[in-house]
Amino acid sequence: MTRTFTIFRRELRGYFATPLAYLFIVIFLVLAGVLTFFVGNFFDRGQADLQPFFTFHPWLYLVLIPALSMRLWAEERRSGTIELFLTLPIRLSEAVIGKFLAAWCFAGIALGLTFPFWITVNVLGDSDNGVILAGYLASWLMAGAVLAIGAAVSAVTKNQVIAFVVTAALVFVLAVAGTPVVLGLLQPWAPSGVIRAVAGISLFAHFAAITRGVVAVRDLVYFLSIIVAFLAANAVLIDLKKAD
C-alpha cells in the first residue's frame, strides 16, 4: 500500500515536472469552454444546468485522455527505466495501480478546474447541484475507463504515437458501439443477445445515463469493471512483453 502510494506520488509529480500537465489542463479547459458555449448553446438554452458541458466530455476524452495515457508505460520502455522500476521490490499490481491512480488523479484535477462552469450556472439560476455532481462523477469515471484502456495499450509499445492512435481507435469503437448506426448494421443478421451485448458495452450510453442524474449501480459497475479489466490486461501485457 505504501509502495503503491510512493509510485503514485512519483508519477503525479512527473506530470507536473514537464509542461505536458499545464498544456493538457489549458487545452482541456479551453476546449471544454468552446464546446459548451459555442457548440452546446449554453446560454440560448435558458436552463441552469451543465448538460451542454458534459455532453461533449466523451469526445474531448477520446482525443485528450490517450495523450495522457500514452506515456504511462511506453516512456518507461523507451528510456529503459522499466527495467529499473520492475526490479525494485514491488508487485506488478502495485506498479500498475500506482501509475493508473496518478493519471486518474491528474484527470480529476483537470476536471476539478472546470469549477467556474459550476459557479456560473449557480449564479445564473437555480440549478440542481445533485445532477451536476452526478455529471462530474460520470465524467471522472469515463476518464478512468479511457485511461485504463490507454494504460493497457501503452504497455505493449515503446512508441507513444502508436499508443495514442490505438487507444483513440479502441475508445472510439467502445464509444460508438451503442449508437443506432452500429446497431443498425448488426440488426439484420446478429442474434438479439449479441446486439444487446454490443449496446451494453457502449461507453457513451453509460456515461449519459449517469449525467442525467441517476447514479445506478449497473453504470458504476460498468465503469469499474472496464477499469479493473483493463488494468488486469495491463499487468498481463507488461509481464508478457517485458523482454521486447
Binding site: R10, G14, G80, T81, E83, L84, T87
Partner: peptide, 12 residues
C-alpha cells in the same frame, strides 16, 4: 541492480 545503460527518470 544497475541495469544496462544506467536508466533513470530524466525529469527527476
Amino acid at each position: 541492480y544497475l541495469p544496462e545503460g544506467a536508466p533513470a527518470y530524466p525529469d527527476m
